[in-house]
Amino acid sequence: MAQRIALHPILGVPEKGRPVKFTFDGKTLEGYEGEPIAVALKANGVMVHRYTKKGHQPRGIFCAIGRCTDCVMVVDGEPNIRTCITPLKEGMKVETQYGVSPLPFEEQGCPSGKKGDGDETV
């Protein structure tokens, strides 16, 4: 589980919003209001934000500034939300994204991920 910094030698005590509850794949977790969703997830030990469409490979935080779009998840029912720059709000429903869906691949009818090779037709 990732550790929050209680006291920083240069920056002092990090400024945080009020504690709020949100759900991740149905589990209730706690984070601070206004911090990026990705940070709240990290503080709760969540590393995998999504599984890719073709290869079903796990992805998480990569650039943390909204550029790389690797950390996207389904938030309040909407897919492809960049969790590293989307502020956490009370009661948010955050779900792992499989392809572009919150449903695991088995439930989407594509159980095994094929690594993205051999796709020669366009």
Binding site: T52, K53, K54, G55, Q57, R59, F62, C68, T69, D70, K115, G116, D117, D119
Partner: peptide, 16 residues
Amino acid sequence: DDDMVICRCEEVTKGE
């Protein structure tokens, strides 16, 4: 290393 993903979004490999 042809299997290595280069385009992370569209999952396109170096070999491709």
